[in-house]
């Protein structure tokens, strides 16, 4: 039996489509964890990245924090939080957020920094307030890069939330972890397929958001 057979068998089994361990419920769980973590990480990373990028201050400190945060192994952090804090959403959210903040923060900072200074100078000379310069001049131009940072964070969250099943969390990772434990390879491959599809859907969503949100003037001159 090859992988495709497993996939067919998994999705063909109607028992996998309802109930607490059914695909819709597990998918919903996974999406919920991911969105929550992404929301928290964005709430931290975006404002800090925008302000430091606009003022140009704190870039070195930021790079240091990002390098340190990147060196932390997310799976290790997940297990550590679990053994320290026990079962629950918090021990999972902490590593997911720690994981997602650096790409958002650093990319946003870089994105705003790399905006051509002359329109910013022109805007200031025309009497725009600083917040307005940031939001109306810098952000629209930096948007593709900012979105790519958010995308990286989202992809990593979806991936790591899968591993969270190991510490008894729900989500699509359950199929993989339970399947490995039960030696039910059909379930393992089914879960892996779902997770991969979710990751690709995430990519697609970000691609679509970029198409809609980025001005054609920025998209095409890029």
């Amino acid at each position: 039996m090859n992988v495709l057979n497993f996939v067919n068998a998994f999705f063909g089994d109607s028992a996998h489509w309802h109930g607490y361990d059914g695909i819709p419920h597990r998918l919903l769980e996974h999406v919920q964890y991911s969105l929550t973590a992404l929301g928290i990480a964005a709430a931290i990373g975006l404002p800090v990245g925008l302000v430091t990028g606009h003022t140009g201050r704190g870039g070195n400190a930021l790079a240091l924090v990002a390098t340190a945060a990147r060196a932390l192994p997310s799976f290790g952090l997940l297990v550590l939080m679990f053994v320290l804090l026990g079962l629950g959403l918090l021990p999972v959210m902490i590593p997911l957020v720690v994981l997602a903040v650096p790409p958002i923060l650093v990319t946003t900072y870089e994105a705003v920094r790399s905006v051509d200074p002359s329109p910013v100078d022109a805007a200031r000379g025309m009497g725009m307030t600083e917040p307005r310069i940031l939001l109306r001049v810098e952000v629209p131009v930096a948007l593709p890069l900012i979105l790519s940072g958010l995308r990286s964070a989202a992809i990593q969250i979806v991936s790591t939330a899968t591993i969270a099943a190991y510490v008894s969390l729900g989500g699509l990772g359950r199929y993989i972890v339970d399947g490995l434990y039960q030696r039910d390879y059909e379930k393992v491959v089914g879960g892996a397929t779902l997770v991969a599809v979710l990751a690709l859907v995430t990519l697609t969503v970000f691609w679509a958001v970029t198409r809609v949100a980025v001005s054609p003037g920025v998209r095409r001159s890029a």
Binding site: L99, P103, L145, S152, I155, A222
Partner: peptide, 16 residues
Amino acid sequence: AARPEPAAVAGEEAAR
């Protein structure tokens, strides 16, 4: 700002 995509991927998709 030119072609931000690849650089951003290389630079920021770190540990998962």
